[in-house]
Design a protein around this nucleic acid. Sequence first.
RNA 1: GGCUUUGUAGUACAAUGGAUAGUAUAAGAGUUUCCGAAGCUCCAGAUCCAAGUUCGAUUCUUGGCAAAGCCA
Length: 615
Amino acid sequence: MHPTNINGIIRNRMSENINKNSSITEQLKQATVQAIFNLYGIELTTNTILVNATKPEFEGDYTVVLFAFVKQLKKSPEVLGAELGQYLVENNATLFAAFNVIKGFLNLSVTDNYWTNFLTNNFQNNSYGIFPKNGEKVMVEYSSPNTNKPLHLGHLRNNFLGWSIAEILKAKGYDVVKTCIVNDRGIHICKSMIAWQLFGNGATPQTTNTKGDHFVGDYYVLYNDEYKKQVAELIEQGITKEEAEKKAPILLSAQQMLQDWEAGKPEVIELWKAMNGWVYEGFNTTYQAIGSDFDRTYYESQTYLLGKDLVEKGLEKGVFYQKEDSSVWIDLTADGLDEKIVRRKDGTSVYITQDIGLAVDKYEEYHSNKSIYVVGDEQNYHFKVLKLICQKLQLPSADGIFHLSYGMVELPTGKMKSREGTVVDADDLVSEMIAISQQKTEELGKVKDFTSEELTSLYNTIGLGALKFFLLRVDPKKKMVFNPEESIEFQGFTGPFIQFIHARIKSILRKANEDDLNKVMAFNSQLLPLEKAIIVELEQFPSIISDAAAEYDPSKIAIYSYNLAKTFSSFYSDLSIANAESEEKKVLRLQMAKLTAQVLKTGMRLLGAGVPERM
RNA sequence: GGCUUUGUAGUACAAUGGAUAGUAUAAGAGUUUCCGAAGCUCCAGAUCCAAGUUCGAUUCUUGGCAAAGCCA
């Protein structure tokens, strides 16, 4: 072995490895790997290098944490830091200006030149942060409503999450197919149908001037009222509670109706179609208002028989087994789960079976290797089982199944309960948010010259922006508390704050001279801390999108956007743009403002929110 | 009963195993001759408890306690 030769070859290969297009932290990692190899002959990979933003109390921009490899290199952190810092600064003069070592931390200062070059190269790029197509396809299933109830606060979190994660994945370069599965059949809708037959007197959403989904939901409520009444009556007649709950006449009628539906009885099917039609009309109105859309909608009435042949296949393969009563099961105890039924003894299939069938159908239609299901965390177990069964059946789509599980939205008083009337209706909430944004806007009186169309659109943008931001700023996995009073605050960590900063920047840019903005200029004077802070933050945007896409977490975008807006706000109140101390600074700050506005716009768009030019 | 998830200021949220745990709100004090005050500046306050792994733990492991969900 001739180390010099090998080193020589590898050194060349590694020098080429520093990619000028990647983020500054990535370049720093690559440079560190290269430095360690050239100094000590040890080859590391970039993901073993830990790079953090330098804490404000220390000199520098980025910090390499040295503790991780002091053992391997047999050097003290101080010596290692000094040697490494020296090497990095000497060999990457365009990147690093200076370094210092404190304890096990190597702090590096990036050259002002790097930052100003970055700004010049990107400030006119309207798609800054958006990645090129990567050729991969991913499906996102979200919303998935039941047709017996209007949408509520929990659905809003689902819809905003699903829409946002789809947009974030698009930004990361994926080809995204948004789908929705509508639960349009089953006992729940039969309950609404029965109640309508009993109490409706032929009423329709039109005759009662009610939104279709609310109209049908009202009959579901009526059903439950009547059911409770009947149960109470039966108990009074001396029947046990348990028995009464099974024998209530209205329940029996609903069950009969479900059977008639399955048998295809024409008048039942007709009623079913009519009531679902009303619901869809209502849903479409809501979807349009909140900006949800789907490339493909599946209906459970068309998918609930799917998967039956898969049960047979599973039995042949020995993945499933049959019990004496002829029901079919899968034993997942070896995987730490239970035994799970996949076909009842009467031959009807269960939820999980249809889901497997639908997964196969979707794969055959779209050939997407990744399929994301945006569904509440109460179904964690269900999706664990679904994925496992698909894997055991060796379905091609199995490994790509990902359950994007989100926590419940609670009120400060606890869970929403329909019985106690504490369910927050989606339509009510949306219109309330819009009404409040109108009121606040009018109080401030800055857009008195707007036409009524412009005003309507502005109130929508602000109201929905506030709502979406509020629901998306929290890590999806966690349950969250929705405080009606706080969520309508437009100050602090909110969507309207970001919209306000955007509008402000636009106002500055409108007043500025276009030529100043686009002036080609060498920036020679030193960057002030506030100037640098913004450019550093702007540079991170693509990495943030990557993170958010990798973790399916829109809150990363929300938090980043807010921080950027806040940094700009501080900067702006301290340093003048129009009356900057020099021509050079004026151009620089205009470009900073331009790119900040662009990034805020893109960031908010990825959350499904708009940013107004004025507000 | 079994399994899963979550416990961070009064409240709501942050923190790939890294430096003195960030931010917003609510309370207090400032700040409009000047690019938009839905702003900015200052001031305080927290990791459920106990062990373990580690140079280093909010983060990982185990055991409690508490809350939520799923299964029977």
